[in-house]
């Protein structure tokens, strides 16, 4: 009888995992000196800061409008340049387009490398090279967009229908014609959708690039915080929020139409 009873699976593993997780969280808190006590004693300070932040400085909205527009332009330029560069790179990274592992693994390595660098760090590096202004911001967003679009694209390219590719091989097309007639029509709509998606992410990223001097609204965010003009900070946050929501909505609608 006892031989037939199914043994309850051992709980040791899940218990140890939970324990380890708690240990890690506690260890991190200890090392960084963050305690719940501090959080609670900080509450009055948080409230007083929030009080200082409202109401927003309404007059400030029209003052920062040009800067908000520049931020959007930076995002758009970065997404465009990134998308253009992503076309060859994503094709090179697709194993069904270039069968040799030497080619697609190298392309993927470059992509992964680009993606590991945070956008703020990229911006800081470009500021160091080109000086303060919009150019480092646009360059940082270009690399940032390239990483996102190329990665999403090559994963999509690897799922396309191989049938038309076979048909193009059979008619005697060369590699470029093979890509132009067999691959591009299958990926164009998805590419446009990823471009819009990246543009939308870029707006968020562009809003803070100014913190390292790479242009856009982030510069004002930094300035108002330093001068303790919290009502102006609120205006910037609200403005950015509205712009992101509007662009989010528009790009989502266009993407739905595309696919």
């Amino acid at each position: 009888m006892n031989e037939n009873t199914i043994k309850k699976p051992s709980k040791v593993k899940s218990t140890l995992t939970t324990l380890l997780l708690f240990l890690l969280i506690w260890g991190s808190a200890y090392k960084t000196d963050s305690t719940f006590e501090e959080l609670f004693t900080g509450i009055p300070e948080i409230i007083s800061l929030l009080r200082e932040m409202i109401p927003p400085d309404w007059a400030y909205f029209s003052y920062i409008t040009p800067e908000v527009l520049i931020t959007i332009q930076m995002a758009l330029l970065g997404a465009t340049f990134g998308a253009i560069l992503a076309i060859p790179l994503s094709l090179l990274a697709s194993s069904n387009i270039f069968v040799s592992p030497w080619i697609y693994q190298t392309a993927r390595f470059i992509l992964n490398f680009l993606r590991t660098i945070p956008d703020l760090l990229l911006a800081a590096i470009f500021v160091a090279i080109f000086g303060l202004g919009l150019i480092p911001g646009v360059l940082a967003l270009t690399i940032f967009s390239l990483g996102i679009i190329a990665k999403l694209m090559y994963e999509f390219i690897e799922t396309i229908d191989p049938g038309p590719l076979e048909a193009m091989t059979a008619v005697g097309a060369n590699k470029i014609q093979w890509i132009a007639f067999g691959v591009i029509p299958q990926i164009a709509a998805q590419f446009a959708a990823y471009f819009l998606y990246t543009f939308e992410i870029n707006i968020r990223a562009a809003a803070i690039l100014g913190l390292v001097g790479a242009g856009g609204i982030g510069l004002y965010l930094d300035e108002t915080l330093n001068f303790l003009e919290y009502q102006k900070t609120t205006s910037i946050i609200l403005y950015t929020l509205v712009v992101i929501m509007v662009i989010d909505y528009i790009t989502k609608k266009i993407r739905e139409k595309l696919l």
């Binding site: 229908d161 049938g163 038309p164 076979e166 048909a167 067999g182 029509p185 299958q186």
Partner: peptide, 9 residues
Amino acid sequence: FQNFNLIKR
């Protein structure tokens, strides 16, 4: 081909 293999779009 069996599946025509046209560019559908």
